[in-house]
Design a protein around this nucleic acid. Sequence first.
RNA 1: GUGCCUGUAGCUCAAUGGCAGAGCGCCGCACUGUGGCUGCGGUGGUUGUGGGUUCGAGUCCCAUCAGGCACCCCA
Length: 424
Amino acid sequence: MSEIIRSVKGTRDFYPDQMVFRNWLYNHIRIVAERYGYQEWEAPILETLELYAAKSGDELVKEQAFVFEDRGGSLVALRPELTPSLARMVAQHRQRLNVPLRWWSFGPFWRYERPQKGRAREFFQWNVDLLGSTSLNADAEVASVAAALLSSVGLSSDEVVIRVNSLQLMERRIAEIGITKDFQPAVFRLIDRSDKMAESKWLEYGQRLGLNNGQLTALIEMLYDTDQWGDSEQLCEFFQITEYMGTREWFEFDPRIVRGLDYYTGVVYEARDKFARHRAILGGGRYDNLVSEVGGEPISGTGFAMGDVVIQLIAQEFEVVPDINPCRTQILVTLFGDESIVQSNNVANELRQNDLRVEVYPDVVKLKSQLRYADRQGIPIVIVLGPDEIEAGEVSIKQLVTGEQSNIPLARVVQTVRKILESE
RNA sequence: GUGCCUGUAGCUCAAUGGCAGAGCGCCGCACUGUGGCUGCGGUGGUUGUGGGUUCGAGUCCCAUCAGGCACCCCA
């Protein structure tokens, strides 16, 4: 045998037993999103590079996008995020869309980075956005959808927190410290790293940026001031609304949250496990200018994205993922010989016409092997159909969990199987 | 792109520079028309690849490929 061709770095193979998690997550996502009135949508997986060029931040486009030339010579990118596509689609059909828009989407994304814990090059991402409202009700609602999902999958606010901040508040604070506006992006990055770097390194880094000791001291003091959200009307209102929405317990003010994407303009947040041992589970916030930047009429939006990788790590860590059998088959019909293939298929078809999920064993092999297969697949019922049963116009129904087995007339197969399945 | 760590059976991992092993899995038999459990037997390998040092390399050295982790960035 020649060597097995390798999969592409950073991609993951989803065997049936691994699809179970993704589908489980997707089901929770759909139910929660619909509960809040959000509609599912999807964008192309390929977009022109131009779409991302000025909107997503240099790093994401220049370093992390999968970019290539198509056969016609145009530069296209595998989408590294969804929000620019959202902005484009909204801009294209602004007039016919009934605002406010509440949209959600779940699909694959690609970023060319070194795979590591919580990060893959191909990943799935849930996006939730509300466009056409500048009210903090919208921010609080979208963030509450995030909280509702966390709750829905079985996590608690003791395990996961959504840390919230306001970019306006931060801008004000930074100005008060005497840092000019052009330093702001660099200082945001410095703030972002404050819990990652050792304090001495962090101070060094701050000095390199040109901050003096007084400014650094003031900055540190600000970063530890967990009560200052009271100075932000925006945040006061945000927290107040989450109270009304019944999700207040999930949120916490954190002055160190400044999101990396360039297009955020207002309230921002990210969810982490309580002790921040993993990467962010989800991140989001308000973006006021995005749609106008792709050439549309200005429309304000707020939304978040959640990747599938970190939430899986967290869900496994807190043991909230149920044990689901990837095999959904309810009944296996055995095959005894080439002569009895008619009878086996007749029984299977009758069951299928009654909405039951049925397999017929494809090969004439020992009954032992057929039963062992059913056992390993976790199929609860086996219908044994051999010469004796056929002769008598019966089938033999075996329940693998209890080992019980009985012969019944062919005409009563459906009702008997139904009864067994209902009693489980 | 930078740094650190790891590559041994299908899987998880052992093996002072000196005969490549265990558990699990898989296959068979006990039980030729009955799974799981048990007992017995069997299958398991170019030690990632290439080179070097050595009487002798899974082990040491170099290169290379792959994977993991961290940085960068971010879901």
